[in-house]
């Protein structure tokens, strides 16, 4: 397996690459440039980087103003603050006027680790996907994270991108991988069960699928990077084939990928669904790997929860 890299690193690297290509790209941060990795962009393009200090609400508003003049602002903070604290600014100053603001939210989910529950945002996908016109993306590895950033810059309108703190394996380095906003990707074909996963849980779902194989269960794994707009076709098609769907995300099962998948399946092709994620609970301090194990979001945990679902 290739080296592991955190998607926040990919974000910073992609921004620096993008800055060279597009002079309209500007980057804003709220005193977290070292952590969100926007510091990479800052070093390359200091005149187009603005540190707003610890004031995320204002940062989002400034980005909105910049966007009205033709700039393409990328605003960065931890998911907790970008989607949480600044929710209403994102909704009213960016979403309502459909401005071309890109939100790069890092340190999403429990893999923030030792900082604990105050900084572990398991609610951002739910918040962001309720905003009309907002595109929501949650990449699964370095390859996809970079592709998200490039695609976000190309499209018009607000985009929320969710990145992680913890290093994760590269899973999309196959030659035929092609990223498209709004398109899911079958990373493993199967016939007995569909696992729909996003972010860091895609790699973990692949591990779980390997374990299921030993039990004679052939699982299909779908990577959903764009949670909104959701690739309904790929999910329905797979559900028709397997008749059972499991979702896996490092996010609350309330309002996240699991809810989005259920929204679609309950209306268009009802099948039994098991949502794996954070179950209406806060996280806690610990290493990322210890937390994934405890909250059963690593390969083993997802495998065990699927076995319970199938029992």
């Amino acid at each position: 397996m290739a080296d592991k890299i955190a998607t926040r690193e990919s974000y910073g690297n992609a921004l620096a690459e993008l800055g060279a290509k597009n002079p309209n790209v500007v980057v804003l941060d709220a005193d977290l440039a070292a952590a969100t990795k926007t510091g990479v962009f800052k070093k390359a393009f200091p005149d187009r980087f603005f540190d707003c200090g610890i004031a995320e609400s204002n940062m989002v508003g400034i980005a909105a103003g910049l966007a009205t003049t033709g700039k393409i602002p990328f605003v960065s903070s931890f998911a907790m603050f970008a989607a949480g604290r600044a929710f209403e600014q994102v909704r009213n100053s960016v979403g309502y006027p459909h401005l071309n603001v890109k939100i790069g939210a890092t340190h999403a989910g429990i893999t923030v680790g030792e900082d604990g529950a105050s900084h572990q945002c398991n609610e951002d996908i739910a918040l962001m996907r309720t905003i009309p016109g907002m595109t929501v993306m949650c990449p699964s590895d370095d390859v996809e994270a970079k592709a998200c950033v490039m695609a976000a810059a190309e499209m018009d309108g607000p985009v929320y991108m969710r990145f992680g703190r913890a290093a994760c394996p590269i899973i999309n380095d196959r030659p035929d991988y092609k990223f498209e906003v709004g398109k899911g990707d079958i990373v493993k074909e199967g016939k007995d069960l569909t696992i729909v996963a996003t972010g860091i849980c895609v790699g973990n779902a692949l591990e779980a699928a390997e374990m299921l194989k030993a039990d004679g269960i052939d699982a299909e794994v779908i990577n959903i990077c764009t949670i909104k707009p959701l690739d309904e076709d790929i999910i329905i098609k797979s559900a028709k084939k397997t008749g059972k769907v499991v979702t896996a995300e490092e996010h609350s099962v309330i309002g996240g990928l699991g809810s989005a998948v259920c929204d679609t399946l309950s209306e268009k092709y009802p099948v039994p669904v098991k949502r794996i994620g954070m179950y209406d609970q806060f996280g806690e301090s610990g290493s990322a790997s210890a937390l994934l194990e405890k909250y059963r979001l690593d390969g083993k945990g997802i495998y065990a929860q699927i076995k319970e679902f199938l029992a």
């Binding site: 603005f50 204002n58 400034i62 909105a64 103003g65 910049l66 700039k71 209403e88 009213n92």
Partner: peptide, 12 residues
Amino acid sequence: QGISAAVGMALS
């Protein structure tokens, strides 16, 4: 919220 957008315009 409006003042922040105005600041963004002035910055631009």
